[in-house]
Every structure is written in structure tokens, then in C-alpha cells.
Design a protein around this nucleic acid. Structure first.
Lengths: 133, 133
DNA sequence: TATATCACTATCCTTTTGTATAGTACTTAC
DNA sequence: GTAAGTACTATACAAAAGGATAGTGATATA
């Protein structure tokens, strides 16, 4: 009978947890990898053309930018517009859905600053370290 | 002279944008991949032991869980405690710093639901699709 | 004519991520 | 004594992500 109670407890916790896991998984599927959020940030600051974005984001290669923009388009976060002027101009803009990531990015940015101060200041992790105080 | 103005505009925007990019990059470095946030969510719901976490998160393998827990420990988000009882019990808990991700996860969860409703309902993307309405 | 820009694509390679399967040393349950 | 659970590690492999470099066809600039 102890066993039965335990199962109930586990099931409840498991079910609650799953309810959180699924949407977070969905979000991560759309925003995965090193570059997507950085591209979205760049577009929030008004960048629009391929080469501009490439210059804005340190170390991104053309190949990655091209691939990630295609992914973001498929997820309806970014819109690609081709103007058939001479020469042809390709413009990238955020969709309404893409702009709705503003809050998430803000929270991530604030947490990132905290993380850098609390953890990265002490020990060198990765390659983006700059000396703190 | 048009050129000079343009350079100023780009520089300003670039500098502002970089200020956002760096912390977000820091955050992504600590939280990257498919599993870290899911593990943290699982620990927020009170799970603590290796096998429990493994059961809680769909499709994670022992190898990945083991690796990601080590990464999270290195970033001071998770604490690993060994009790030398018989048999030995290993407990994983969130650190204060790990718990500070609660808001981020909540925002991500809410956005994930919105994303599922707005985008994933229409077209099949990935393997987590369930029929909407 | 030579160089540069734009918006990419192609190729090759390495690293990381993820899967599958098995095994270990211990203990508890049946 | 057999099976199952705990907390992993080891091995082998496939797939995806990411990096480096070069090239393309257009046009614009010097």
C-alpha cells in the first residue's frame, strides 16, 4: 500500500512537470542552436539585409546565417522579402510572432548579466570571458 | 557625406545591439542544447535522483543526462550530493543560481504555448506535434 | 579593366549531439 | 538464487551543428 501512494505521488509530479516540459520543448525546437536568438536580436535593432546581419553578429558564417534564416522563416518568426530592383535587394524583417520574443530576450539578457557576474567572473568558461573588475 | 552619416548610424546601432548580444550569448552558453532547461524544470518539480530525472524527461538517455548534469554542475546551476548510506544515494538539487531561472522558464513556457497555437497547429514541424482542436 | 559588394551556394572538415547497447558493482525484493 | 533497481561508464556509431574556404553571377565603383 506504501507502493500505491508512492505511485500516485510520482504520477502527480510527473504530470505537472510534463505540462511544463512540452511547451518549453516546443519553444526550444524553434529557437535552438547558437544563432537564432542572436539573429532575432539583430533584427530587433533594425538590421535587415543579409550582409548587415552577418557583420553584426560576431563569428557567424554565411552558411550558418543562411541556414538559420531559412529555419526562422519556416517557423514564421522572420519574413524574407525580395525587391526586384536593380540590383535585387533582399530584406529580412521580424513577423509579429518574432517580435513577441522581446520579453523572453530581455529576461535572458538580464539573466546572462547575472550569470556573468556570479559564475563567469570567478572561473574562465568558454571564450567570451572578459575580465570582471 | 551621405556615406559618413550612414557609418555613424550603423556604428550606433551596432554598439547598442552588441550590448544585448553579449549577455544573451553568455546565457545561451550555459543553457545550450536540448536538455539543460528540461533538466532544470524537472529539478524545480522536486526530482532529485538520477533515475527519477531520466524517467521524467522523455527520450533522454543516460549518457546525455550524465553529461548535461556535469555541465550544469560546472556552471553552478545544479549541485550533486553523495550520501554514503547503504546503498549510496546521489541527489541533484538546484543551486540558488539555478532557481533564478524560474522566471525565464515561465516566459519560455508561455511563449512555447503561443508558438504551438500560432505556428505548429497549421503545419507539422518536428515530432512533438499533437492535433490542435 | 580591376576591384568590391550583395546574397548567397558548394565543398570539405571537425566537433558536438544523440542513439543503441552493454556492462559494472552494489543492494534489495521475491 | 534470480531478478530488478541505482548510478552510472564504455563503446560504437549516425546525424546534426558548426567552421573554413572558395566560388557565382549580377551590378556598382575607381
Amino acid at each position: 500500500m506504501e507502493k500505491k501512494e508512492e505511485i500516485c505521488e510520482v504520477k502527480l509530479s510527473h504530470s505537472d512537470c510534463s505540462k511544463s516540459l512540452l511547451p518549453v520543448r516546443d519553444a526550444l525546437d524553434a529557437l535552438n542552436g547558437k544563432w537564432k536568438l542572436q539573429i532575432i536580436i539583430s533584427l530587433m535593432f533594425g538590421n535587415k539585409r543579409f550582409t548587415q546581419i552577418a557583420k553584426e553578429i560576431p563569428n557567424i558564417t554565411d552558411k550558418m546565417l543562411s541556414k538559420e534564416l531559412r529555419d526562422l522563416e519556416a517557423h514564421e518568426l522572420v519574413k524574407r522579402t525580395v525587391y526586384d530592383s536593380i540590383p535585387v535587394i533582399v530584406e529580412y524583417t521580424l513577423t509579429e510572432h518574432g517580435r513577441s520574443l522581446r520579453e523572453l530576450i530581455e529576461v535572458l539578457r538580464v539573466w546572462g548579466i547575472k550569470h556573468r557576474n556570479q559564475v563567469m567572473g570567478k572561473v574562465e568558461i568558454g571564450d567570451t570571458l572578459e575580465v570582471v573588475n
